[in-house]
Amino acid sequence: MTEFTTVTAPRLPSRERIVKWAPLLVLAFLILLFPVFEWLEDFRGGEDHFYLLDSRFFSIRNAARVAIAATPALMVALGVTFIIIMGSIDLSMEGTVSVTAVVFAFAFLAMGGTLAGHAWLAIPLALLVGAAIGFVNGVVHVKLRIPSFMASLAMGFVGTGLALLVTGGDRVRVEDEWFRSLLTVRWFSFPVMCYVALLALLAAWFIQSRTILGRNFYAIGGGEDLAKASGLNVERVRIMGFTLAGVFFALGALMAVGRIGIAETVTGKDFMFISITAVVVGGTALWGGIGGVWNTLVGVLIVNVINNGMVVIGLPSFLQDGVLGLLVIVAVVLSTNRKSISFVK
């Protein structure tokens, strides 16, 4: 009877294997691409230029700059990664970041304005506020049965409104040397905020791969009906997912304030585009179940390397937005398996 039993080939088909590593390849390609333009420029100017060696782009100091720019976006993108793995979407990041940034700044100043004193309490407070917004988001989505993109988008506007209410349109400066050491103190060429981000990334990775919650995200994204039939409390997992995302959005807000020392209503601006783009470019599937935090890291780096590289090679500014858009599309084409086209709606 063995003649009837066919065993599927054990390894991944090569196409899938390529797709799995494509985002990293795209990143490597971009990192090697921009120095070529620098070389061309110097070559035309008749200067000596030894490809990577003389590249200003390909340098530790620029790596640190890219890392600083990427840090807040990475935090936000990590949060939304979990939601996208579940097959939902969270668009509340701009409002959540703004309101947590502003709440943090006000609380920080109210409690003495320095990390050396009681003001450190503002940090857990901001995380709590982020969690609360995410929780409300999840409850509205799950209990009122509103599609997640709509519920979260609406919550985002509520967040922006709250931030405006709290600040009255003003900026709040956080000038504490201790807090700003996130940016100003460097270990091995990279500022402290990059290490904080690394810790958060590892925490996210732990949640993704080593906790019931993380496993449940994948189960819901891969087959919600089956997850239900296996006895998972899908509603609770969803709400917890949005809450967790809120915590990461708040972390993003802390990093954003740490980077420029200002909290204001527009602190959250642009995070929606950059985080969703990064998640998708990184290869996490919008229909859920596939991808993870490392994909998101690569995606965030891709977007930030493009942004940085375009200025470094002196690309005319009117071309930059267009080129970013095109590169994003190319990156998505290369890094996602679009065979399941059902999501293209």
């Binding site: 019931i212 189960a219 994204g221 891969g222 089956l226 296996s230 179940g289």
Partner: peptide, 21 residues
């Protein structure tokens, strides 16, 4: 395919799905 296994999850993840605790 629809209700039995979660595609994208591996063998052990599928096996323990109903008794993660």
């Amino acid at each position: 395919k629809v209700e039995g296994i979660v595609a994208g999850m591996n063998v052990h993840e599928n096996m323990t799905l109903a008794q993660l605790p």
